[in-house]
């Protein structure tokens, strides 16, 4: 590079405001007298203009739904663990819950939150796991025969529902169309195609059922319905329903 013919790097530095005032004046003067240098500065300006004109990419709805579901799970987890968000547990990145490959309507995917690839790398803070475990114990979910559906009643239904967020044991009602048909038939007050945040087979007052935790579109507030396992568009039984959170 010479003062008469600044090179591309120095012209780019001038363009970016990197040069000290004295050097900037020299390079600017040299560039003004040199057609090639002027062309380079014009090219850099055109590049910046092209970058500034890039449109913001639209957020695909399926990703927006996935993020909403992840925050819903966080809200549910926080509600079941401790008031308010947790303090920074350290520098470890947070476990964001299910991610790629997880259908937006079924945030648990084929596994529970905390069992994904990222969860193995970045475990959830133990306080969350402990709180969920405590809720399960209180609710009678954790016992010697985990394969059996937990027994719930209307007193512990809310606790079981919170613990069911992310569970994928909704049986045939995991099918969105069947679930929507069921909810239309037996629970008209609920949104039939609401996002399913968790499903679990339960026994309510001695009767077999499926507990469904549904998003309401309001962070931290969920609709809960317990329906009979055979529920569908043709009808069924609503064993219990309630709203939790808020």
């Amino acid at each position: 590079m010479t003062a008469e013919h600044p090179d591309l790097a120095e012209l780019a530095d001038l363009d970016a405001g990197l040069l000290d005032p004295a050097r900037a004046a020299e390079v600017r003067a040299a560039a003004a007298a040199d057609a090639d240098s002027t062309a380079v500065l014009d090219a850099l300006a055109a590049t910046r203009a092209e970058l500034a004109a890039l449109p913001a990419p639209a957020v695909p709805p399926e990703f927006a739904a996935r993020w909403d579901a992840a925050l819903e799970r966080e809200a549910a987890s926080a509600a079941g663990a401790a008031p308010g968000p947790r303090a920074d547990p350290g520098h470890a990145p947070a476990d964001p819950g299910p991610r790629r490959g997880t259908p937006p309507g079924r945030p648990g995917g084929t596994s529970r939150p905390g069992r994904t690839r990222s969860a193995r790398r970045w475990p959830r803070p133990s306080v969350g796991a402990a709180a969920v475990l405590a809720a399960l114990v209180v609710a009678g979910v954790v016992w010697n025969r985990p394969a059996a559906p937990p027994s719930v009643d209307r007193v512990n239904l809310a606790a079981v529902a919170r613990a069911a967020v992310g569970a994928t044991d909704a049986g045939d009602l995991a099918d969105p169309r069947r679930r929507a048909g069921c909810l239309r038939a037996v629970a008209p007050a609920l949104v039939p195609d609401a996002m399913l945040l968790g499903g679990r087979r339960v026994e309510l007052d001695g009767r077999e059922g499926v507990l469904l935790v549904l998003a309401t579109g309001r962070l931290g507030i969920f609709d809960v319905a317990v329906v009979d396992p055979g529920c569908g568009a043709g009808g069924g039984a609503l064993l219990a329903s309630m709203q939790i959170g808020g």
């Binding site: 990703f63 996935r66 925050l71 809200a75 947790r86 964001p96």
Partner: peptide, 18 residues
């Protein structure tokens, strides 16, 4: 990119206290 945004939102939700 979607995973990174999700991770960010969840981390911010949890780490608001920091």
């Amino acid at each position: 990119a979607a995973d990174a945004v999700q991770e960010t939102l969840v981390a911010a939700f949890r780490r608001a206290g920091s």
